[in-house]
């Protein structure tokens, strides 16, 4: 196993995350809002502590294939959430839409040299954000949506609903506490 770089990452950073994760976290690539994006993918929930917004612009390469010509992200979340967001923008930039859709959790984790088990869901979130951005583009273009992407979108929407249900509970609890205090 690689020895953590103590000089660069004292304490927690050195033992919890790989150098690559910390590098992406400290100097994330392609972050910020994008004006007039061709597609947006919004995933996560602030209650859970991770929110990723991914913006893409679509262009064409020399063989006239549609590619991710530009990509940006905005993320609220932990180190892993920010690092996976940054890494996925690097991986997707310049790729054809077909290839970009295939970027998954495993590839992302490999790119980062691993993630702590408890943080693996962040890599899922980043891959979902990219899939949603491409889905959004196809939908805006009124184009047929590839089957795999449609399946993913259905799963992501279902998960979003579950989280929103959970959030509803929080609101309910909060209201109860507030009314109890008032009374």
């Amino acid at each position: 196993m690689k020895k953590p770089n103590r000089k660069l990452c004292p304490a927690a950073a050195g033992s919890t995350y790989t150098d690559k994760v910390i590098q992406h976290f400290q100097t994330p690539h392609n972050y910020g809002k994008m004006e007039n994006p061709d597609g947006i993918g919004k995933v996560g929930n602030i209650i859970c502590g991770d929110v990723m917004w991914l913006y893409i612009k679509v262009g064409k390469n020399s063989s006239k294939k549609e590619i991710v010509s530009d990509i940006k992200f905005e993320t609220f979340g932990c180190v892993a959430a920010i690092a996976t967001s940054s890494a996925i923008t690097d991986m997707a930039k310049g790729k054809t839409l077909e290839a970009a859709q295939k970027i998954d959790k495993a590839g992302l984790v490999k790119e980062l040299g691993g993630l702590p088990p408890i943080k693996l869901h962040c890599s899922v979130l980043a891959a979902d954000a990219l899939a949603e951005a491409i889905y959004d583009y196809y939908q805006k273009q009124k184009r047929a949506i590839p089957k795999e992407l449609e399946t993913k979108h259905i799963r992501i929407s279902a998960e979003k609903k579950i989280i929103e249900e959970k959030y509803k509970d929080w609101v309910d609890i909060e209201e109860k506490i507030q009314s109890k205090r008032a009374g």
């Binding site: 004292p10 976290f25 859970c48 991770d50």
Partner: peptide, 25 residues
């Protein structure tokens, strides 16, 4: 609009040790 674990690690990278009640940590 800030997540605690990110804050802790940023502080740690500057040599400051603190803690957070964030879920992610």
């Amino acid at each position: 609009f800030v997540e605690g674990e990110s804050m802790i690690i940023q502080l740690d990278l500057r040599g400051i040790a603190a803690s957070t009640g964030s879920a992610c940590s």
